[in-house]
Design a protein around this nucleic acid. Structure first.
Length: 589
DNA sequence: TCGGTCACGTA
DNA sequence: CGTACGTGACCGAG
């Protein structure tokens, strides 16, 4: 009998069924498992537990919820050919409960054991020796007498032997139990356990995104880059010739002035000499001087191509692209409000490059983005019936404009200003209108602002702790006041942005789960937008599943059904293809 | 070589 | 004195 079958039988005998927990730890030594009740299993030669790749058979036979310390385990499993469907990610849940970003095992353990995270023990020389210390302390114990995780274990010693791996898995299960209890004590307005599950799924998705990458048409991207920044340079000398030629387009318009265009200070001086006085040389400011002198126009064009050449040029392409996929590292949440982040420019790829994002032959992309997600989320989390009514429109700003008796652009600016904490500018008058029309939503934002201003932590709808930083004592009053105002704006935005991020991740997790049987694979998450790659033959079903997932999440997330969520959904060959305005009605009725 | 600042792409 | 992020170049301090 194959060893994997033996392992599955043993897990079944230990009471593990569909959706039940299996804690898992993986290293070069193999794997260790632990299930509820304390039964431990580890990899090894037949007839023992098999190898890491065999866990895919466990996955298929039992469909457990895997518990692991952080998504490095997800990455290790995926690299071994295992495709975990669901998990409980202790680091992700720690970030949810305790805020911030740091979530290494020592910190996660301290969080659960009510130990001061600022007094984590450092790795000492004695720990590294292994074995037993003179005072009889057993280094095979993962924790110290004072309760802290042993630094040598936390630093990777947990993976030295399969024996340690199963102890590490057992410890993960204990952390899980404690985190579940803490989640139950949070009492946010949303469902903290559901958030824990979708945040965990988001981490798993991140591990997959890093492996699968964003499909890029190699010829297309080369052509686009060539159009904007010139041909691929053959050597360093060629590269500098192209660079000089680009600079010359600007410099020839100001003969007699030598200027380094890459130095904002020198650009500012140059502009001053031709009668243009600016406090800084940002593009939006220079916009106003387009007509004043031909060099302004040229400078703005130079900035555009310089940006592409430096940040999104051939170097960027070569560094992050392999076999037609653009890959970066992903995190399930940032340190602030909890949005996903991505490196390699994946989240800030200029629109000009998007035509090159193209499904490979035989595949198509489902492109879906949530419409006006932040104000809709605000209506739900604030519980504002009047504002909820406005979400019933496909375009939320239309009824708001009508109610405020202003035009749509003004209504939109006012709503965004309210959520971002803007107080000056054009939104002023309309903001007062918002106060009158939607007092509950506006009071909700005001409360968040006050929390932040006075330095009180707060939680998002789904339970994420938003930490408010404090300046060191002895800060002068003006600095303190500015910092307080900054915290207020941050807090005001974080409760909305954070809740929207939670909604998005719940949607993405559901899409991931529903699309998997149809070979649909999420290849991009961009705050309110999803790209799903799918085989041509199944793409219609995948698109339908994306819509179904939205309805499912909306029904769970906003059970009152008073708030409506919508998405644009289209099937495209490239990311940039025009989207037909298909509104997916997310109301359950 | 480092951190701070400027700048700018995305949502 | 509108939020968040990641990236790259310059610049002054070490």
């Amino acid at each position: 009998m194959p060893t994997a079958e033996t392992l599955i039988d043993q897990l079944r005998a230990a009471g593990v069924g569909r959706g039940d927990l299996i804690a898992v730890a993986v290293s070069a030594a193999g794997f260790g498992l632990c299930v509820s009740g304390g039964h431990e299993f580890r990899s090894g030669p037949a007839p023992a537990g098999g190898q890491v790749a065999d866990l895919e058979l466990v996955e298929q036979a039992l469909r457990p919820r895997w518990v692991w310390w952080d998504n490095s385990t997800a990455t290790a499993l995926i690299q071994a050919g295992v495709r975990p469907a669901t998990c409980f990610d202790l680091a992700a849940v720690h970030r949810l409960i305790d805020g911030g970003w740091a979530a290494d095992p020592a910190r996660v353990w301290a969080g659960c054991a009510d130990l001061d995270p600022d007094r984590l023990p450092a790795l000492g020389q004695l720990d590294l020796l292994g074995g037993e210390l003179d005072d009889g302390v057993d280094l095979e114990q993962p924790t110290r007498p004072d309760g802290y995780l042993r630094p040598e274990w936390a630093a990777g010693g947990w993976g030295r032997t399969t024996g340690r791996l199963s102890v590490w898995a057992a410890l993960a299960l204990r952390v899980h139990d404690r985190q579940r209890a803490r989640l139950g004590d949070l009492h946010p307005r949303g469902d903290a356990l559901a958030t824990a599950h979708s945040e965990s799924a988001a981490e798993l998705l991140c591990a997959e995104l890093a492996v699968v990458g964003l499909p890029l048409d190699a010829d297309r991207i080369e052509r686009i880059l060539a159009d904007y920044i010139g041909p691929r340079p053959s050597d360093a000398e060629h590269a500098s010739r192209i660079r000089d030629a680009r600079d010359e387009q600007v410099k020839r318009l100001v003969p007699g002035h030598d200027v380094d265009l890459r130095s904002p200070a020198q650009v500012r001086e140059l502009l001053a000499r031709i009668g243009i006085e600016v406090s800084d040389t940002r593009s939006w400011r220079l916009e106003m001087f387009r007509g004043a002198h031909p060099v302004v126009e040229a400078l703005l064009a130079w900035r555009k191509s310089e940006r592409l050449a430096t940040t999104y040029g051939y170097r960027w392409l070569d560094e992050h692209t392999a076999d037609g996929r653009l890959r970066g590292t992903w995190t399930g949440c940032d340190g602030g409000a909890g949005r996903m982040t991505a490196s390699a420019g994946l989240h800030s790829m200029p629109a000009e490059l998007r035509p090159a994002v193209q499904a490979p032959d035989g595949q198509l992309l489902v492109r879906a983005d949530l419409g006006q997600i932040e104000p809709r989320v605000l209506a739900e989390i604030a519980g504002d019936p009047a504002f909820a009514l406005a979400t019933h429109a496909d375009d939320l700003y239309a009824p708001v404009a009508e109610r405020l008796n202003v035009d749509r652009p003004t209504a939109k600016i006012a709503v965004l200003a309210a959520m971002y904490g803007q107080t000056s500018g054009t939104a002023g008058a309309a903001l007062q209108g918002l106060e009158d029309a939607y007092p509950i939503a506006m009071r909700f934002l005001k409360n968040a602002y006050e929390s932040g201003r006075t330095g009180r932590d707060l939680r998002t709808h789904g339970g994420r702790l938003i930490r408010m930083y404090r300046l060191p004592g002895g800060t002068d009053a003006e600095t303190e006041r500015r910092a307080a105002a900054g915290r207020g704006r941050f807090a005001r935005n974080a409760v909305v942005q954070g809740a929207a991020a939670e909604f998005f991740k719940a949607w993405a997790a559901t899409v991931r789960a529903r699309c998997r049987p149809m070979d649909g694979q999420i290849v991009m998450c961009l705050h309110d937008e999803l790209l799903v790659q799918a085989p041509e033959g199944q793409v219609e079903q995948v698109a339908a599943a994306v819509g179904d997932a939205l309805r499912e999440v909306a029904a769970r997330w906003a059970p009152s059904t008073a708030v409506r969520f919508v998405a644009d959904l289209s099937i495209v060959t490239t990311w940039s293809d025009a989207k037909p305005a298909v509104v997916t009605d997310a109301l359950p009725f």
